[in-house]
Design a protein around this nucleic acid. Structure first.
Lengths: 143, 143
DNA sequence: AAAATTCCTATTAAGTAAATAGGAATTTGA
DNA sequence: TCAAATTCCTATTTACTTAATAGGAATTTT
């Protein structure tokens, strides 16, 4: 599975924050309740989003999280890389610009191209693209 | 990881068989030795390739495996689906034409498009595409 | 009949993903 | 000032999947 729950949940958290539009910070507790995801798990995920500069936080009462940029400036590739750590689709040293010792490997190019395809797929999409549909239901029913 | 060792090893086995060109069956024992992969593990992988109609076998002494088709007729998508079982990049019911209950999910289209992108990537490539380079070293040095 | 192979079923080992747990630090508002 | 609400930090546990191993049965050739 290329994208695990961390990546999926990260998108849902950000979409949840984005949908709130106000001046207030969105508290994770409420997000967790709305999304039906454990607060503690979300904490560990959003801390990575914060480290990546996608959200910022405010502690204490009335604290929570906000997006650092508008939704059309937040690239999905950045969200997913932050949440997943890596999106490499296959274990091949070439994807990390490392050398496997076989310069004439018949599958190296294939894996590099696949990796590029995936990075490009998420590289030209933003959070706002996910919000464009006129009817949206942020609640996810699938586990 | 979208593609695990099963998928990678499946390709290597098939490329190994393809490179032998003779009338003889390729025995897994020799393939395993050449590729540095456990015989028992390869047995379980190639049995899936056989079930998918990609190779056929002959038992007993001088037995082994052959490709059922020429390399330009063997699609990588079929090899990988056979070896991996599934290539879905994310757990979303829509990828299996199932219903998650949320018709207005903001990420459903994204995942469907990603899935299509991956299927299309492997759907127009064949084993012979991997063998086109003039210099090829079938041995893989990476774990 | 022996050797070499595929075939079948089950089990184990290792690694990763998913979540849980407990409490410290910070901030706000009463 | 203090209690409540929040983020923050570190560690642990649980569940699941991948990867591999094991043993031997069935088949075919020489």
């Amino acid at each position: 599975m290329l994208i695990s729950t961390r990546g999926r949940y990260a998108l849902r958290v950000l979409l949840d924050i984005a949908s709130k539009e106000g001046d207030d910070f969105s508290s994770l507790k409420l997000i967790a309740q709305r999304q039906g995801i454990s607060l503690k798990y979300l904490e560990s995920i959003i801390s990575q989003l914060q480290a990546a500069g996608i959200v910022y936080s405010h502690r204490g009462k009335n604290g929570g999280y906000k997006l650092t940029k508008s939704t059309d400036e937040i690239l999905l590739i950045d969200v997913l890389l932050a949440a997943e750590g890596s999106l490499r689709p296959v274990q091949c040293p070439a994807l990390d610009n490392r050398d496997c010792g076989n310069d004439n490997c018949p599958t190296k190019d294939l894996w590099v191209q696949l990796n590029n395809t995936i990075v490009n797929f998420f590289g030209d999409k933003t959070l706002s693209d996910l919000l464009k549909s006129d009817k949206i239901n942020l609640e996810c029913y699938a586990k």
